[in-house]
Design a protein around this nucleic acid. Structure first.
Length: 270
DNA sequence: AACGAAACCTGCGCGC
DNA sequence: TGCGCGCAGGTTTCGT
């Protein structure tokens, strides 16, 4: 479900509700969400307070005193705030039972999401965060160019690779490439410095604007945690197959790039 | 090492 | 109505 703006919205919402709350119990109904042994997770976190919630790219990080819990929502992960004892809904896999009668529930229809327990000391230095690329707004001049010029993959595939650039997903890559007038199937070794820097600038703009509108909501139900953004009304090409290009009027087409549905204006994007 | 495809899951919409 | 297929805002693993 979420890319950087949607995860950031979740982070901000959770923060207002959860800072200072203490974990009284953790209940798991599906044993593949936690990558670590449940007993280990419980012994590290039970009795501890949530001190902060950080975000790196699409990863959420719950900060405790000695440990952190890194959460990736993948395609469909969501957090719901309920009351302890509320009926377990389908696809609610992890319950974090907090003080103040709060039951923080991790909901994931496809069970793709994952959580990793790490120590505060090392969590930025090891998997899964240590190889994460820079977010567009923090990228330096030519940083993207230097990372892709010696590779020979589709530019769309490169922008979806979180080790190259962090935070973009299928929707925002399409929008970024449209704004940059670059075709998603351009090979990375043909991208110029100016084009790479323009891509970073466009990505920064798209992500900022999407965040300001609360993210994008397509093909998704409303959640109890405000992931009902408005940026879907601002999309220029993604989901617009058969419609007119807002720049030139040409019909927008859909193709597959790296197995992902991709929307493009063949006239504008070269 | 690098690349592309398949795998991981479940649900929904569409065509027949 | 029922069935099979393709598709879904992501990442990891497998095969070449």
């Amino acid at each position: 479900m979420p890319e950087l703006p949607e995860v950031e919205v979740v982070r901000q919402q959770l923060k207002t509700k959860l800072i200072g709350r203490t974990i009284n119990d953790i209940i798991s109904h599906h044993d593949r969400i936690f990558n670590d042994d449940l007993k280990l997770v419980k012994s590290a976190l039970i009795g501890k307070a949530i001190l902060d919630i950080e975000r790196y790219g699409k990863y959420l990080v719950f900060i405790f005193d000695d440990h952190v819990l890194i959460s990736h929502l993948r395609m469909e992960g969501k957090y719901y705030l309920k009351h302890i004892g509320d009926k377990k809904e389908k696809h609610e896999h992890i319950f974090f039972e907090l003080d103040n009668d709060i039951s923080l529930r991790y909901h994931d229809t496809r069970k793709f999401g994952r959580m990793d327990l790490r120590t505060k000391e090392e969590y930025l230095k090891i998997d899964p965060l240590h190889k994460l690329g820079s977010e567009p707004k923090f990228m330096k001049e030519n940083e993207l160019y230097n990372k892709i010029i010696n590779r020979n993959i589709f530019i769309k595939t490169a922008l979806l690779n979180q080790e190259i650039i962090a935070g973009l997903g299928n929707i925002y890559v399409d929008e970024t490439l449209f704004m940059s007038k670059i075709h998603p199937e351009r090979r990375t070794n043909t991208i110029t410095k100016d084009e790479a820097n323009l891509i970073v600038q466009s990505a920064t703009l798209v992500l900022d604007k999407a965040l300001a509108l609360g993210g994008t909501t397509i093909r998704s139900y409303t959640s109890s945690l405000g992931v009902t953004g408005l940026f879907q009304n601002e999309l220029l090409v993604h989901t617009k197959k058969g419609e007119s290009c807002p720049t030139c009027g040409n019909i927008i087409t859909k193709l597959k790039v790296g197995g992902r549905g991709t929307y493009v204006c063949d006239k504008c994007q070269k």
